[in-house]
Amino acid sequence: MQVEIIDPTVQPVPADWELFRKQEGLIAAWQADALTAVAWCSTRPVRLGIVRDGGQVAALFSGEVTGLPPRRGRYAEPGALPLTGWFNCRMLIGFTSGFVFAAELPEPDRVAVLAAFEKALRRRLGRHCLGILYRQVTADMLPLVARRSRPRITTAPNTLLRNRWPDMDAYFADLPRDRRRRLRKIHAEAAEGTRVLAGAGEIDPVQAAALAQATLRKHGSSDAPLPARYFHVLSGEEGVRYFGHLDEDRLLSFDLAFDDGRRLVTTVTGSLEVRDGGRRNLYFDLYLREIDYMIGHGREGCEFGKGMAELKQRFGCELIPQTAVPAAW
């Protein structure tokens, strides 16, 4: 097997990355230009991996090196690594693991791909890296990475709403009475006072970037904000779906979701504070717009991501366990 480790801030992502992504129907979060945009704004060095077997792409990897010092300085050289740390193997934007295989690749070959990637990454990062931390691993992928004596660390679960309704009326009817009345009211009032986005393929990238950054700061996150370029390169990309509310042309709230034809997967969100000209409960209505889309387009379910699990369960979501697995060199 041949493994290529890529620093997208100084190296072009190979053309067969995008060919593989489209052939395998991967969500647009794996788009090469989008990952490159994330790498350029990240406070941690990003590395991508592509594994080929007989010249054919067998798997893709994404992640970032975390360690000491914990973050890059503003003027750090592109690609510079911390003194020591771990490679966090995860999807850079989203709530899924940082590796995907060719659908037809059998399990023994998948294990061989992981071993080849680990070996190549160890050679590339050298003393700067203590090992790989596989993040956001689901039960079906756990046997591939949690072999031998590697520990398993339970992390915050993902949330999934499984589609079992013919329409929104049936969805609301399934909710407890008090919750049903409140969510119906929120859904109706949001449509009256705003221009609603419900599955749009593009959005104003500058407004989206600013709103996403403001939301991170509101919740005390120190993560680097996404640049406007991230939203720009996704514009018009197959499977990109925006849900949001606008006051004329001013963006008040939005969710970025990816539709792979089977599930809707939510990722980046942004919402104005009421005191900044926003409106109450638009965040809840985003969920309802996504549920409406899921039902109307016959998707199996909608992933609502990590965090606020109790709140999302009120909308009918179930918890999907996820695990972190450290693999020390």
Rank of each mutant, 00 (worst) to 15 (best):
Q2Y: 01
E4K: 14
P8M: 01
Q11G: 00
A15F: 11
W17T: 10
L26K: 10
A32E: 08
T36R: 14
R44Y: 03
Q56R: 15
G67E: 02
L68K: 08
A76G: 14
A76H: 14
L83D: 08
T84S: 13
N88A: 11
L92W: 09
G98M: 15
F101L: 09
A102Y: 00
L114D: 07
L114E: 05
R123V: 13
L125K: 05
C129H: 01
I132V: 13
I132D: 00
M141K: 12
A146N: 10
R150Y: 12
A156F: 08
R162Y: 01
D167A: 02
D167M: 00
A170P: 02
Y171A: 01
L175K: 12
R182Y: 13
L183P: 02
E189W: 00
L197E: 02
D204G: 03
A214Y: 06
S221D: 01
A224T: 08
L226M: 05
Y230M: 08
E237M: 03
F243D: 10
D247Y: 08
L251K: 03
L251D: 06
D259R: 09
T267H: 11
E273T: 03
G278T: 06
M294G: 09
H297M: 11
C302E: 05
C302H: 06
E303G: 02
G307N: 07
E310M: 07
L311G: 01
K312A: 06
F315P: 06
C317E: 12
L319E: 08
A327C: 01
